[in-house]
Amino acid sequence: MISRRAALRAGLLAAGALVLPRRTLAKDKAPAPIPPLPITIAVAEVGGAKVRDEAWIDAQMTEALRLFDPLGVPLRKVAARSLPEANAKLETRADRDALAALLEPKRINVMIVESLRDVDDPKLMRMGVHWRHRKTPAKHYVIVSASARPSVLAHELGHFFGLPHSSVTDNLMSYDRTGAPPFLDEAQSRKVQSFARMYVTEKLLTPV
């Protein structure tokens, strides 16, 4: 005869057998797709003319889409506007900070400027930067110079999604290039996906 304790134990084991597959299925379930994330692009004007035309901007966006869309992190340009001439040449940290007043909320803000000086070594010019407002670091945005090569927007978006620089030749986050198409590795891809999900769940970006 089976004791009451043994019967209870058998019942619990049976219940566990029923629950385990459900837990396993829950772990195996793929996460929900990341919805398209909005990019707004503001282009500085000098003398009434934009410092870069649509074809140049499209080339920057095309490279960004080539790298991020396959990761399941879709980016979509949702708006274009002009930056005042006063914001066209960025020489100092204060100049970069001043762009925070022109941000569109809950979007990835990209500012195309005529020139961007290196604030750590003023003898140098930069092609791009991911900048955080010094007093309000939650306000952050991408600045791209009119002299930038086609992968600069993608590189700075990499910083926007939490990626540091890389020492691997031809990696998107590296300065060491051979001319081959830049790439992101698996660990970088996971980090970009994680940041993208965080921006959505924390309602820091409003998906398209």
Rank of each mutant, 00 (worst) to 15 (best):
F161A: 06
P150V: 14
H159L: 08
K139F: 14
G158T: 06
R149M: 08
F160I: 04
R132L: 11
S151G: 04
T136G: 02
P137R: 04
H140G: 08
G162C: 13
E156P: 08
R149P: 00
G158S: 03
V144R: 02
F161H: 04
G162T: 15
K135W: 02
R132H: 13
V152R: 11
I143R: 04
H159T: 09
A146L: 02
V144F: 04
I143Q: 03
L157V: 08
F160V: 02
P137T: 09
G158K: 02
L153K: 00
G162Y: 12
R132Q: 14
V152T: 15
H140F: 07
P137S: 10
L163P: 00
H133A: 03
T136I: 12
R132T: 14
E156N: 10
K139W: 11
L163Y: 06
H159F: 06
L153Y: 03
L153S: 05
A148L: 03
S147G: 06
S145W: 09
H155Q: 12
I143G: 01
R132E: 15
R134A: 15
A138D: 13
L153N: 06
K139M: 11
P164C: 09
S145V: 08
F160P: 00
P137M: 07
F160L: 10
A138K: 01
Y141I: 09
R134I: 15
H140N: 14
F161T: 08
Y141R: 01
S151E: 15
P164N: 14
F160W: 10
H133S: 01
V144N: 00
H155V: 08
P150A: 12
V142K: 04
L163E: 06
V142R: 02
F161D: 00
H133C: 02
R134P: 02
P137H: 02
F160S: 00
P137Q: 07
A138W: 01
S145G: 13
G162W: 11
L157M: 10
R134W: 08
E156G: 08
V152C: 11
V144G: 01
P164M: 10
H140K: 06
I143F: 01
I143E: 05
S147P: 02
H133N: 10
P150I: 13
S147A: 11
A146C: 04
L157Q: 01
F160G: 01
A154F: 02
G162P: 05
T136F: 11
K135I: 12
L153I: 13
Y141G: 03
L157W: 03
H159I: 12
L153V: 13
H133V: 07
S145R: 07
P164T: 15
I143C: 01
P150G: 05
R134C: 08
R134H: 11
H140C: 11
L153W: 05
F160H: 15
R149V: 14
H155T: 13
G162S: 13
L157T: 12
K139C: 05
E156R: 09
P164W: 08
K135S: 13
H159G: 12
P150F: 07
P137L: 09
A146R: 13
V144E: 01
H159D: 01
G162D: 13
